[in-house]
Structures are given as C-alpha cells and as structure tokens.
Amino acid sequence: MKDNPDLRGARVLVIDDSKTIRRSAETLLNKAGCEVCVAEDGFEALGKIVSFKPDLVFVDIMMPRLDGYHTCALIKSNPNLRHTPVVMLSSKDGLFDRAKGRMVGAQLYLSKPFTGDELLEAVRGSLRQATGSE
C-alpha cells in the first residue's frame, strides 16, 4: 500500500463491537499516518470522544447497548462535535440503512467487509468534505 501523507495526523475514532474490524481498521489507519482511538460500543466511545477530539468517526450500526444510529445522533447533537464527519459501517447494505444513516447525520456509509483502500478513501473524502476542499 502506498504512503498517504494527506492523512498524517488525522485523528480517527473507530467504534465497532468486532475486535477484528477494530484491529484491522486501526492497523490500516496507523500505517497511513492517522492517530487512532478505538471503542467497543457507543457508550465507551462517548467517554473517549470528548478527550480524543477526532477529525472523523467510523461507527458500526449494529452494536450492543448503544447502536450506531443513536451514537451518531448523540455526536451530532453535541455543539462541539456536530461538524465531525461520521461514517457508518455495516454488513447490511440496504437503502433503508443508508437513508437512516443520513437522517442521523452520517456523511458516508461503508459496507463491511471493506478493503484498506475503501477505508482510506472514506477518510480522505470525509476530511476533504469537512474542510470544504472538495
């Protein structure tokens, strides 16, 4: 995989109840130069997000305790975080899931399993969109 200097220093929070997804995303993002924080579910993420101050959040839809839709809605309802891009992760690739993700404020929807290139492109695209440099 080629070096991605445009991602250096980007702070990314990955919220997924799958240890495999968390580990693989963390490894790929670290190799691209991102600072990464991981959480198992929405509750754990809400505790970390305020101190970590991510530039981008990846959140799985199907999680115990607090699902991805509610987690995204809570992030977007916080005035300090509402401009933080959120990318929904899901093994379900339905139109309804995408629409519901948009309704709670998600910028993008990434279907699992995703490739390393898809993950990094989601980061690049979301950060470009957030800074208005599209």
Results as ranks from 00 to 15, higher is better:
Gly42Ser: 05
Arg82Leu: 07
Val59Asp: 02
Thr71His: 01
Phe52Leu: 03
Met62Asn: 14
Met62Tyr: 10
Lys76Pro: 09
Lys76Thr: 03
Leu56Asn: 12
Leu28Asn: 14
Tyr69Ile: 03
Cys34Leu: 12
Tyr69Gly: 04
Glu35Phe: 09
Leu66Phe: 03
Thr71Ser: 07
Arg23Thr: 09
Met63Ile: 03
Ala10His: 07
Cys37Asp: 11
Leu81Ser: 02
Lys53Tyr: 01
Leu56Ala: 08
Gly68Met: 08
Cys37Asn: 10
Asn78Asp: 15
Ile49Met: 13
Ile21Asn: 15
Ala39Ile: 04
Ile61Leu: 15
Ile21Glu: 15
Gly9His: 05
Lys19Leu: 13
Ser77Asp: 13
Ala39Glu: 11
Asn80Ile: 02
Ala25Ile: 07
Leu56Ile: 06
Ile75Gly: 01
Leu13Gly: 08
Tyr69Asn: 05
Phe52Cys: 03
Glu26Thr: 06
Asn80Arg: 10
Ile75Arg: 03
Leu13Asp: 11
Asp16Met: 11
Asp60Tyr: 07
Ile15Arg: 13
His83Arg: 11
Thr71Trp: 02
Glu44Trp: 03
Pro64Cys: 06
Ile61Arg: 15
Gly42Asn: 07
Val14Glu: 13
Thr20Val: 09
Leu66Thr: 02
Ile75Tyr: 00
Asp67Tyr: 08
Ala10Glu: 14
Phe58Ser: 08
Asp16Arg: 12
Ser77Leu: 07
Thr20Ala: 13
Asn80Phe: 02
Ala32Cys: 10
Asn80Val: 04
Ser24Arg: 14
Lys31Leu: 15
Pro85Gly: 01
Lys19Arg: 14
Val50Asn: 00
Gly68Val: 05
Ser24Lys: 12
Ser51Gln: 02
Thr84Cys: 14
Met62Leu: 11
Ala45Tyr: 05
Asp67Leu: 08
Lys53Trp: 00
Pro79Phe: 00
Ala25Arg: 14
Ser77Trp: 01
Cys37Lys: 13
Tyr69Glu: 02
Pro54Glu: 05
Met62Ala: 11
Leu56Cys: 09
Asn30Val: 07
Ser24Cys: 09
Met63Val: 03
Asp55Cys: 01
Thr20Glu: 11
Ser24Met: 15
Ile49Thr: 04
Pro64His: 09
Phe43His: 03
Gly33Phe: 04
Glu26His: 08
Asp17Leu: 08
Arg8Asp: 11
Thr84Phe: 00
Met63Phe: 06
Leu74Gln: 13
Ala10Leu: 10
Tyr69Met: 05
Gly68His: 07
Asn78Cys: 00
Arg8Glu: 12
Ile21Trp: 08
His83Phe: 08
Leu66Pro: 00
Lys53Val: 04
Asp67Lys: 09
Arg65Lys: 14
Cys72Val: 01
Arg65Asp: 12
Val57Tyr: 10
Pro85Met: 03
Phe43Leu: 07
Arg11Gly: 04
Val14His: 10
Asp17Tyr: 08
Asp17Trp: 07
Asp60Gly: 08
Cys34Phe: 06
Phe43Asp: 09
Lys48Val: 01
Asn80Pro: 00
Leu66Ile: 05
Phe43Glu: 12
Phe58Leu: 12
Arg65Ser: 09
Leu29His: 04
Gly68Asn: 09
Lys19Asp: 14
Gly68Trp: 07
